[in-house]
Amino acid sequence: MKKSKKFNSERLMVLVLAMASAISILTTVGILFSILFQAIEFFQLKSFWYFITGTEWSPGQMDSRFGALPIFAGTFMITIIALTIAIPAGIGSAIYMSEYASPRWRNILKPLLEVLAGIPTVVYGFFAALTIAPAIVSFAELLGLDAAYNSALACGLVMGVMIIPVISSLSDDVLRAVPDSQRNASLALGMTHSETIRHIVVPSAMPGIISASLLGLSKAIGETMIVVMAAGLRPNLSWNPLEDMTTVTVRIVDALVGDHAFDSPDTLSAFSLGLVLFVITLILNMISLAQIRKFKTRYKISSL
């Protein structure tokens, strides 16, 4: 009798544990549905087609229009600027740490990059608005150009620096996971150190580097505080990075911080933008995970 009681409490315990792990699924489902339902409500009020292709975003008016194209364009612009900084610098840093730095130096550099990764984004946002943006305005003036105080360039630059450690950390892990026998083989053929890195090590680690870059891209698209503090509110369809632009996340915050009724299209528009954000980042994460799996199976690595 005693034994079966023990057995039952055992099963109960496992059941409780299983339920706890269901929370993570519930969270994803919760995010998806809380966004999806409100977004559907929004699209019952406003045209989905215009949302995707329209160029005028004018909430809070009698005849408010919700064309998100300029918002997507702004997000795209700032993301591109950020990645132009972050991908080369992130990969370069990773190469330095994994291939050139002595173990002692690496032990110093890696924590320093982690400091950069640990800085809250609100801090980056303040720095972008207080220091970088005015510097860009002055610099543009020197060149005879006109820059806005909330230019896409300022946000993009700071966001790029924020993403460097995201890319460098994972890339460094992946580069170091490339077996030394590969490096030796290339060096013994009379290749220089840098040729070995460029032609052998980096191509081998490429799936991991792609994964890291996609993760950086996803981070850039979803980043909120930097753009809320340093980017504009004005939906602006332009190619000039010195102009102010707005992003998906900025408009989500703007729509939800104001005092609108919860079921007004103004508020609901935040969820439709959120849906776009969710779908895009989900796809990016999926590709990123698939890439890293490819790398792991290539070298039969279980950690990372």
């Binding site: 996803s218 981070k219 979803g222 909120t224 980042t281």
Partner: peptide
């Protein structure tokens, strides 16, 4: 890897 702002929406 989900953007933090979406947790806010949740």
């Amino acid at each position: 890897a989900i953007p933090s702002i979406l947790f806010g929406l949740l």
